[in-house]
Design a protein around this nucleic acid. Structure first.
Lengths: 208, 208
DNA sequence: TGGTCTCTCAGCCTTTTGGCTGATGCGGCC
DNA sequence: GGCCGCATCAGCCAAAAGGCTGAGAGACCA
């Protein structure tokens, strides 16, 4: 049978090289293409039609990982996408799942975990690192504290230091709506000011 | 002549694997050991006496990269140490140099940059990524942008999300004084709001 | 079909923050 | 002794943020 074809997307040469070396040891897995940006990933996907896309969320320049996932989803709604990233922030996990990722691996995963995730992804299985699973589990117990995708998106932009007006312009919504979202975010994070929300987001949610 | 022996220190298997694959393509460079923690790095160094240590600053658990560098320095004051990390925060760069690192590379470096840095390190040359060098250079040219001790203290508390009143109470100064300090901090950081100052502090100054 | 969730928006009011100007005391430094 | 950087404080004003209430549209689900 033909090996599982993989497209690697990560802006760090070293990481791509490492993944390629690791996956190359498995006879049933073959890295057919690499991309250093979201844009390049879309091109590579069109050209190679890989079985699985392994992608980092943080891309240096251009469109980010989440947006790339969404674009891939538009082109092929059943494409298997594995997120492979450094941080297990609640917001990132929610947003990646919402965008259509099949699994969520952390970069400190063992080779075995990575192999299993790739093999699982092509079979439609959802695989994730233990810390990620644990976070999701905790969220199931406290659903009141889970940020909605839109809130998570807003919080992420908030950590860049934008004003309410700027947030509205960036998201194409009114300032009133921004304030509503912020009020909800503050309540869920248990803070009262945007400053505290930012530090909580960065510390607890791992955003940066 | 014997190849340059390298010890890799990074808590991510994938990164070690990638570095090993990249460095392995060079006949004059040989990876003789790997370590996933600061503690393991010290043991590996004692055992293998590598020419160069390539080390990440962020280690999942145990002693961090900076502390590991200091410990290595205590054992062998002339050991060549290359920092290989994701973020170019001012604080990290200064701390790494202070601890005794020879060079500072970012993970998006090209293979050629990495090779050159390893070869340079054994010859006692200081090599760093362009963004890192640019930061250091900028600090030298614009001493006006360096925070005073009091300002740094305030900025640190600011990242905890405190209000002006709370900052004043914590530092035993009036709210007016807090505002004066903040105005100076904003000017030096090149921002206009406290939210932007917080994110800049965490991102660029490495505060958290 | 009705309930719930999410996202969207508006108005009103209070508090907080930021910009500006000006001022005082203290400690180095030439 | 005078200059300068640093830390301290005040008052005034405009802008931004936050608290509150209410409400409509669309999606989803029982």
């Amino acid at each position: 049978m033909t090996p599982i074809s993989v497209l690697l997307v990560d802006d760090h040469m070293v990481v791509r090289s490492g993944l390629k070396a690791l996956l190359g040891t498995q006879p049933d897995i073959s890295v057919v293409a690499e991309a250093a940006s979201g844009e390049a990933a879309l091109l590579a996907m069109a050209e190679h039609s890989p079985s699985v896309i392994v992608m980092d969320l943080a891309m240096g320049a251009g469109i980010d990982g989440i947006e790339t996932i969404k674009q891939v989803r538009r082109i092929n709604s059943r494409q298997a996408i594995l997120v492979f990233t450094t941080y297990d922030s609640d917001a990132d996990i929610v947003r990646a799942a919402d965008a259509g990722a099949m699994g969520y691996l952390l970069k400190d995963a063992t080779p075995e975990e990575i192999f299993a995730a790739v093999r699982g992804a092509v079979q439609g299985k959802s695989v994730m690192s233990a810390p990620v699973a644990s976070r999701l589990f905790q969220q199931l117990r406290n659903p009141d504290e889970v940020l909605t995708p839109r809130e998570a998106e807003l919080l992420s932009l908030l950590t860049e230091g934008l004003s309410n007006k700027a947030l509205g312009q960036r998201l194409f919504i009114s300032e009133a709506t921004v304030k509503t979202h912020l009020a909800h975010i503050y309540a869920k994070l248990g803070v009262e000011t945007r400053a505290a929300a930012i530090s909580t987001a960065i510390r607890r949610e791992g955003m940066r």
